[in-house]
Amino acid sequence: SHVAALEAFPDGLPLPCFSFEDAIEAVQEGRADCAIIPIENSLHGRVADIHFLLPESGLVITGEHFLGIRHALMGVGPRDGVREAMSHPQALGQCRHWLKAHDIRPVSYPDTAGAAAVVAAQRDPAVAALAPPGAAAIYGLELLASDIADADHNMTRFVVLARGSKPASGDGPWMTTLIFEVKNVPAALYKAMGGFATNGVNITKLESYQRNGSFAATEFFADVEGKPGDAGLDRALEELGFHAKWLRVLGTYRQARKRG
């Protein structure tokens, strides 16, 4: 997240936060202008439950950023002596085959750089951290292995959250993120999504989730191409609103990379 923040906002000053909730709270309280949160990874799927975190926060999505991920193993002793690797569950999942091949047990920690700090403090050669290479220099650790993700295409998508947004205008391409709940009737999702097909609106992401443990009503998180004011998207959202119990747009922003 630190690297993504520097890439997305070269003139900005990063404010370290221990958790996604802390980062969102910093924006809510005005201690930060925005938060940059990882939400999905090409190898290990969902990162942050943004559909749970964002609706109650009062923040909106104002941008996105893609970051190629390069994990490194770092510690205080030789690699052959490492028995455990500490890191965020996402990082561990993205390197699970490499860790298994080297007989290293994954140990979950809430933050990759924080794991490097713990390893540096413990000074145990049997425990290493899985973190971005730059963390080794910051915490005085030795790089024991580099580029150990299970695939070269390892990529994480981040979204930028802020207290408010400007109207979408100018050149795109644009992306609109929304959440909605379908009615508990047969073909509910088919009917809700029909308006996007008939109006030529591309859906790039559609993910279902359950709230409050009811298992009775399904909610959906969706990314669709376009912005409010586009005739096709406006018609699709109007039709979705008719077939859904409720609908909420979480933000409209320029695509960092064109889909398709």
Results as ranks from 00 to 15, higher is better:
residue 56 E to F: 08
residue 57 S to W: 11
residue 57 S to Q: 10
residue 58 G to I: 11
residue 59 L to W: 09
residue 64 E to A: 13
residue 64 E to D: 15
residue 65 H to K: 14
residue 65 H to D: 09
residue 67 L to D: 08
residue 68 G to H: 12
residue 68 G to N: 10
residue 68 G to L: 07
residue 71 H to A: 13
residue 71 H to F: 02
residue 72 A to H: 04
residue 72 A to G: 09
residue 72 A to N: 01
residue 73 L to R: 00
residue 78 P to Y: 00
residue 79 R to G: 00
residue 79 R to V: 12
residue 80 D to K: 14
residue 82 V to N: 04
residue 84 E to W: 07
residue 85 A to T: 00
residue 85 A to M: 01
residue 85 A to C: 01
residue 86 M to I: 12
residue 87 S to D: 06
residue 89 P to H: 10
residue 89 P to T: 12
residue 91 A to S: 15
residue 91 A to E: 02
residue 91 A to M: 06
residue 93 G to N: 15
residue 93 G to D: 12
residue 94 Q to T: 15
residue 95 C to L: 00
residue 95 C to H: 01
residue 95 C to R: 01
residue 96 R to H: 14
residue 97 H to T: 14
residue 97 H to L: 15
residue 98 W to M: 04
residue 98 W to D: 01
residue 98 W to P: 04
residue 100 K to E: 15
residue 101 A to K: 13
residue 101 A to L: 10
residue 104 I to N: 03
residue 105 R to M: 11
residue 106 P to E: 10
residue 107 V to R: 10
residue 109 Y to H: 15
residue 110 P to E: 14
residue 111 D to E: 14
residue 111 D to Y: 06
residue 113 A to F: 07
residue 113 A to Q: 08
residue 114 G to V: 10
residue 114 G to C: 08
residue 116 A to T: 08
residue 117 A to G: 12
residue 117 A to H: 11
residue 117 A to T: 08
residue 118 V to C: 05
residue 118 V to M: 09
residue 118 V to G: 02
residue 120 A to W: 04
residue 120 A to G: 06
residue 121 A to T: 07
residue 121 A to C: 02
residue 122 Q to G: 05
residue 122 Q to H: 09
residue 124 D to F: 04
residue 125 P to Q: 06
residue 125 P to A: 05
residue 126 A to N: 06
residue 127 V to N: 04
residue 127 V to W: 01
residue 128 A to I: 03
residue 129 A to L: 05
residue 131 A to M: 05
residue 131 A to S: 13
residue 132 P to A: 07
residue 133 P to A: 08
residue 134 G to N: 07
